[in-house]
Amino acid sequence: MSVYANRIRPRLIDVTCGAAQAHPHRERACAGLRGRVLEIGFGSGLNVPFYPAAVAEVVAIEPSDAAWRLAGGRLAASAVPVERAGTDGQSLPVPEASCDTALTTWTLCAIPDPAAAVREIRRVLKPGGTLHFAEHG
């Protein structure tokens, strides 16, 4: 991963996507999350404050070590356990039908093959599980 992708972009995203204008969109995307949640593009944990009480745990997929470090404060303040389980949304190291809900916010545009990521999300969701998302394109 390039210096830009691993060090600069995560900080830019943390600042710009952490703006108050994004909060209503995050709140709406997180509404109804429950049980074991798969979050693709966890980033710096900007969704963590919006997890509803019904979330038992989060399986985080995040390629950037810098973004994961930026998430430290949000993770420390959260009652929800979050495990970084992988780095590639196109190939999830998560068992089939093991997540109740899935979340991705402004992430699919950064994944080289978003269709593969959506197929993987479908694979790991339990029957009746739902995908919650916010996208700009």
Rank of each mutant, 00 (worst) to 15 (best):
V3P: 05
N6Y: 05
N6C: 10
R7P: 00
R7A: 08
I8G: 03
R9T: 11
R9I: 15
R9C: 07
I13D: 08
I13H: 06
I13T: 13
I13A: 03
D14N: 12
G18T: 00
G18D: 01
G18F: 03
A19E: 10
Q21L: 15
Q21S: 14
Q21C: 14
A22R: 15
A22W: 15
H23F: 13
H23E: 15
P24K: 12
P24C: 01
R26H: 10
R26D: 05
E27H: 14
E27Q: 15
A29H: 09
A29E: 12
A29L: 11
C30G: 07
C30Q: 11
C30I: 06
G32K: 12
R34S: 14
R34I: 04
R34F: 10
R36W: 07
V37G: 04
E39F: 04
I40H: 06
I40V: 15
G41L: 09
F42K: 05
F42T: 08
F42Y: 09
G45F: 05
N47E: 10
N47M: 08
V48D: 06
V48G: 03
P49T: 04
F50G: 06
Y51W: 13
A53T: 14
V55P: 11
A56Q: 15
E57L: 05
E57I: 05
V58H: 04
V58A: 06
V58I: 09
V59W: 15
V59E: 10
I61R: 08
P63E: 05
S64V: 07
S64A: 10
S64G: 00
D65C: 02
A66D: 12
A67D: 01
R69L: 05
R69G: 06
R69F: 00
R69I: 03
L70T: 00
A71W: 01
G72R: 05
G73Y: 08
R74E: 02
L75T: 03
A76L: 02
A76E: 12
A76G: 09
A76C: 03
A77I: 08
A77V: 07
P81K: 07
R84N: 00
D88H: 00
D88S: 01
L92F: 02
V94P: 08
V94M: 10
V94G: 07
P95Y: 08
E96Q: 10
E96H: 12
E96K: 06
S98Q: 02
C99G: 09
D100S: 00
T101I: 02
A102K: 10
A102Y: 14
L103Q: 04
L103E: 03
T105P: 10
W106L: 15
W106P: 01
L108W: 13
C109T: 13
C109G: 11
A110F: 15
P112D: 01
P112G: 09
D113V: 07
P114G: 00
A115Y: 04
A115F: 01
A115N: 12
A117I: 02
V118T: 11
R119P: 01
E120H: 08
I121R: 03
R122H: 14
R123T: 03
R123Y: 07
V124A: 05
L125S: 13
L125K: 13
K126W: 04
P127T: 05
G128D: 09
G129V: 11
T130Q: 15
L131W: 13
H132Y: 14
F133N: 03
A134S: 14
E135W: 12
